[in-house]
Amino acid sequence: MQVPEEIVHAAGLIPVVIWRGNEAVTWGHSHIPPYYCGIVRSFIDDAVRGKLGFMDGMIFHVRQCLLIMDIPLIIERHVKPEYMKLLYLPPVYPGEATRDFLISDLELFKKSLEEYTGNTITDDMLKSSIAVYNENRSLLERLYEIRRKKPQILTSAEVMKIVWAGMLMQKEDHNELLKELLPLMEAMTIEPTTKIKVIPIGCLCQIPPFDVLNMIEDLGMVIPDDDLYVGSRYFANKVNMNDNPIEALAERHLKKTPVCPTKGVWDVLWADDVEEMVKLNNASGVISIHVKFCPPHACYYPDFKSRMIEKGIPEILVQVEHEMLSMEGIKTRLQSFTESLGGE
């Protein structure tokens, strides 16, 4: 999250966004307490079980949250990738010092990749990679526009999988696949829905459990849009190309919206962002999906909720974990929420 993949791409490497595995954490608990978020526990579990040996390099943004800081030493000890780099991308604080430091961090990142690959990353190469990524963002935006008009054209889990695939595969290939898919979606005729529209938000750095997304739809709601990381947050804000591509990437990092609690933004409110999204989609409510033991989201949540109440937007919290022990509690909450919105 927040690592500018374009620099890795320009180095001729395939950037892959850290993922949460699909197995229960076992050996990992000898290295990380159970009161850490799913993605960190799952990734460390994969690391110590020897499942990450196929990766050539790893990059960690250690200022994203406290939990991610646990990973580097464990990776150094148990995976020993050929290339490893820690980034200190700063929060969006005012002043030139922050911007200068951010640019220096990105320059050093570029230099370290050059040293690893033995190839110089020219400005033109970086601009070319930015263009590929911007195209991907445009294509995903288009996908979301179509979905907004025809919310039932894909299930929410399918949309997540499309976005997620782009985080794991070569971007050029993803772009080609999207270019095949989008005209087909545009050509499809879907009957307008009368179902209740809801917006899921949260899961700030990982994919929500598909079961939860499916459950929302099974209960008679439809998801026309989202404010999820593996969703609209991932492709928000294109890089504004200028003469200096590193500075352009820095400017993207310094954008305050979509508001992310990890980025130190307090003068723009997340709830205002979400209110806009609710209006745009004519949605009836918001489902906050909080990954258990995600401190940035947990600390921000009470303020978000109180703003939702002030704005008169129905909202409910669903907490998810890597190992979902029971879906019944979530189902009960979502059923009640549906009924309160006038659903069956």
């Binding site: 200022r63 949250c65 406290l66 929060p91 609690p261 990890t262 130190g264 307090w266 409110l269 401190p295 940035p296 600390c299 921000y300 009470p302 303020d303």
Partner: peptide, 19 residues
């Protein structure tokens, strides 16, 4: 003064600002 040594040290200042 929201010294962000650990991010939580900033969250509380941000939270008090919002409230």
């Amino acid at each position: 003064i929201a010294g962000r040594l650990c991010p939580e040290m900033a969250y509380y200042a941000e939270g008090l600002n919002r409230r």
